[in-house]
């Protein structure tokens, strides 16, 4: 497990999501990256049930239950800006039992699927973010395996990102700044995905509504 940076790649002008992904993967292959199967990250939203809200007198908090194909036996549960936990995949069954407290938001499932590339010690995953049937955006995840401290290798990661994202290179993810010198963990990646999905959800709501 190394330091990971998840970012969004804007769709190229006059191109579809699919075409932009192809453009990106071709660039990676030109760089010398090797294809290594596929990956999938999915996220489901739960909100606290109305029955429990009143008694505690607090606003409904959203909880996200996520899976990552990189950790096939784990399930991640995260509150926005809040605590998170990593559990076994059985956690999904538990959530069904907890229906009284957490209710699944309808049609909220968002996921990204795509190809996994290896280049030296870098792991690059370019995915198409879909919500329901429609493609909503492109996610780019870059992991640098050897390093475990985010602040140590950010400049190095940035140089690599620049080599194939060009002007769309992102800034440092917020999780990098949280704990200086701390060992980077899988949950940090999932927080980044959660933030990315939230961003894409908000982005897309406006234009989609406008078209309709």
């Amino acid at each position: 497990m190394g330091v990971t940076c998840v970012s969004q790649m804007p769709v190229a002008e006059g191109k579809s999501v699919q075409q932009t992904v192809e453009l990106l993967t071709r660039k990676l292959e030109m760089l010398g990256a090797e294809k290594q199967g596929t990956f999938c990250v999915d996220c489901e939203t739960y909100h606290t049930a109305a029955s429990t809200l009143g008694s505690q007198g607090q606003a409904g908090k959203l909880m996200y239950v996520m899976h990552n194909s990189e950790y096939p036996l784990s399930c991640f549960a995260l509150f926005e800006n809040g605590p998170w936990l990593i559990a076994d995949t059985n956690f999904d069954v538990l959530m069904v039992k907890l229906k009284g407290f957490f209710q699944s938001a309808k049609a909220s499932k968002i996921e990204t699927r795509g190809t996994r590339y290896q280049y030296c010690d870098f792991l690059v995953k370019v995915g198409t973010v879909t919500m329901g049937p429609s493609a909503r955006g492109i996610s780019v995840e870059v992991e640098y395996g050897p390093c475990v401290v985010a602040s140590d290798c950010w400049s190095l990661l940035l140089e690599f990102l620049q080599s194939f994202l060009g002007s769309h290179t992102p800034g440092a993810p917020a999780v990098f700044g949280n704990r200086h010198d701390a060992v980077y963990g899988p949950a940090d990646t999932m927080i980044q995905y959660m933030e990315l999905f939230n961003k894409i959800r908000k982005q897309q709501q406006v234009p989609v509504a406008g078209i309709r």
């Binding site: 280049y119 030296c120 010690d121 870098f122 400049s155 190095l156 140089e159 690599f160 080599s163």
Partner: peptide
């Protein structure tokens, strides 16, 4: 530079 052929 930091990287050359993917290596620091």
């Amino acid at each position: 530079k930091f990287l050359q052929d993917g290596l620091p």
